[in-house]
Design a protein around this nucleic acid. Sequence first.
DNA 1: CTGAAAGCGCTTACAG
DNA 2: CTGAAAGCGCTTACAG
Lengths: 337, 337
Amino acid sequence: MKVKRSSGKGSTIRDIAQALGVCTATVSNALNGRMDKVSASLAADIRRKADEMGYVKDLTAASLSGFKSHLVDLIIAGSFIPATKDDTWDINPFYGELIFRLEHEARERGHSLSIYTGHEEQCVSPAAARRSDAIVALGITNEQSLARLRRRTGKVIVLDSYFGTREAVVVRTDEEKGAALATERLVQRGCKKLAFVGHGITEFPQNIPAIRYRGARKAADAAGVPLAIVEEWTHLAGGKRAAETVLELKVDGVVTSADILAAGLIEGLKTRGVRIPDDIAVTGYDNLSVARMVTPALTTVDQGLDEKVRAICAFITEGQPGDIRVVDPRLVVRESA
Amino acid sequence: MKVKRSSGKGSTIRDIAQALGVCTATVSNALNGRMDKVSASLAADIRRKADEMGYVKDLTAASLSGFKSHLVDLIIAGSFIPATKDDTWDINPFYGELIFRLEHEARERGHSLSIYTGHEEQCVSPAAARRSDAIVALGITNEQSLARLRRRTGKVIVLDSYFGTREAVVVRTDEEKGAALATERLVQRGCKKLAFVGHGITEFPQNIPAIRYRGARKAADAAGVPLAIVEEWTHLAGGKRAAETVLELKVDGVVTSADILAAGLIEGLKTRGVRIPDDIAVTGYDNLSVARMVTPALTTVDQGLDEKVRAICAFITEGQPGDIRVVDPRLVVRESA
DNA sequence: CTGAAAGCGCTTACAG
DNA sequence: CTGAAAGCGCTTACAG
């Protein structure tokens, strides 16, 4: 009962082995550079033949067989935002920058990057079904999700989260400090009444915006300056909407939890005739390219994304649960504050 | 010589089969809903047991064994741009929007999305090594790359390309028409002298910016209005740099090949005291969220990205080489022109 | 309706 | 240094 079910695509190590009259193990060893297992001349022959036949290793088979898949998953949970009427998606550009940087760094180390976005459960299930070498999780808020991911992958790297410290590797910025830097900048400029714009400040105290708020809170308290909360989703439209509330509050300085919020806010304020930073000073957070695109350019907090991406990639190969890397934020002064 | 090499992660169909005293084929059939192969009651038992044991199907094994991997690769070639001194990457946000939309649509159909960015060869090799159901390729300029991809995957969907029509499925917008719409808008506004800003206009005639240029060219010629070429990379910094050239040319209208270029250009012009659109009118292209972020908001061309993403996903399951879908562009009038 | 077997393409102990 | 075999976890004809 020979059932031949070749996919018909490309050649295999068996084809090479047959062509050369050696066994597949030898071909595998030669192609993987196990030079202690194959003589140099045979290895050279095998490699030449492989090139000649246009051989491309099937990584799916390799990962089933071996211990490494060279696959990294990136989960971006809680990022789903429906399309607007303009047929544009109002997505925080932070995600795009993260994806590009991580993909670039990961590929240099021979990993492929898969992306999972949307609600937490939608992201977690498909990611848990692949044999990834590591899962990088952003925006996970549920301990159970973490447990499910760990079940198959072992190596879960939690990004920008203040939980999961025991079971996972954690990479994040010192968010409180970053928000304090921005707040102190406003205070130094002479602002007497501040607002903080962000999402889920009281509802999700573990999430990044709430943590940034607490940093701003401490700095404002230390300076004896009042700080109101303006609750808004983290996207451009949210920032625009916040403009009205900010005006009602009669503040002269606004700390936002994201550049994209600051961009929307500034646009909203400008259309109402407010001068930035003279009437109201605004700080962003993240230091994305958006920060240089808006007018006036954003004074913002650089969260050290490149450093974090490098830390993530280092942890992919060497990290242990419990490892943690906290990056120092840096104030970037431009024109908006 | 029993070599037991379990990964030790999670349970397998064999564990379930043993626990229930059936064979793995039956478990597989039950879990895959082949109800003609398993009695309803046994299937229910199997499913309950699977849940109980926390079984998660290993998709790597499934794709090696079966014919579908439920994996889709997205190649974004030619997108590499090094980090700037600000530690921000000047990436066209179009890519981020594409990734999010495509991931979202693909996941709804049960596919996972992997990303490959950078130079053409760097993208193509790793993508060709996986058993993907389909490869979506953006920015491929080399017929040989296409051939390599086809070798393993069979289904290559070329996005926004004017070649590969025979060997692949093609999805794109009518780029010439889109650029013509933008150009005609400027002419209607009364512009007497135009410039086109884009990358590789003469060097890469097959690429999108050059095709958009030709559309603008035709429209300008038809209106008897001169159109100069300003060569710049497709990113914010390129747009900013273009401002100087544009001023020297003394034009009163600029067609750009991308929103991000228009955003940079407008910022560059504003800092030089130019009023938009009164002194110089500017059009973008793509209708990204950036288009609403800059001041003045961009008049731009919507390239119908959602429609294209849906077409891509439809083609993943049903497309044949030679299939082509050309989407109609739409002028979106805001303030910059 | 159920089971035993072969196979996907690779890797890794182990024996020569 | 080289080869034969077993295994990764699943799916799919085929036989009962």
